[in-house]
Amino acid sequence: MDRFKDIWNRDKDGGNAQKRSFIRYAIVSTTIFVILVGFVNTNNIVRWVKAGFEISRQEKQIRKYAGEIEQMDDRIRSLTSSRDSLEKFAREHFHFAEPGDDVFIIEDKK
């Protein structure tokens, strides 16, 4: 750490003035480059990280919707394979009834 601090002290340049001057120039140039590329540029590291989080969020959402689609496909298969299951579904969700059935509708008061 002390060597790094000594790079900025011009009194210690001695015979290596040109070499130490180049090292200072390289450090400043590299720092400016990293700041520009990492944070200022439109295609920067911060944007890449945010994009990575967005991609993982969307992949999670895709898995969730794929599961829901599979459940719906199973329900469609069960409703189309049996007339009894279709009638039960129609009675429960659409309040269908056969002639002579007594229908009681109970509404939730919220």
Rank of each mutant, 00 (worst) to 15 (best):
M1A: 14
D2R: 07
D2S: 11
R3C: 06
F4K: 09
K5Q: 14
D6H: 04
W8Y: 12
N9W: 01
R10L: 07
K12N: 13
G14V: 01
N16V: 02
K19R: 09
S21Y: 15
S21V: 07
F22L: 15
I23K: 03
I27L: 15
V28H: 12
V28P: 02
V28I: 15
S29K: 13
S29Q: 10
T30P: 01
T30G: 03
T31R: 00
T31Q: 02
F33S: 10
F33Y: 15
I35T: 01
V37D: 13
V37S: 13
G38N: 02
V40N: 04
N41K: 07
N41P: 00
T42D: 12
T42F: 08
N43F: 06
N44Y: 02
I45Y: 00
R47N: 11
R47L: 07
R47W: 11
W48E: 02
W48C: 04
V49M: 09
K50Y: 07
A51N: 11
A51F: 06
G52W: 06
F53D: 04
F53Q: 06
E54M: 06
E54I: 08
I55V: 12
I55R: 08
S56L: 11
S56D: 12
S56A: 13
R57Q: 14
R57A: 15
R57L: 12
R57T: 13
Q58V: 08
E59Y: 11
K60Y: 07
I62D: 03
K64Q: 11
G67P: 01
E70Y: 05
D73W: 04
I76A: 03
S82A: 02
S82K: 01
R83A: 11
D84W: 06
L86T: 05
F89S: 03
R91W: 00
H93R: 13
F96W: 10
A97Y: 04
A97H: 07
A97T: 08
D102E: 12
F104C: 10
I105G: 05
I106V: 15
E107P: 03
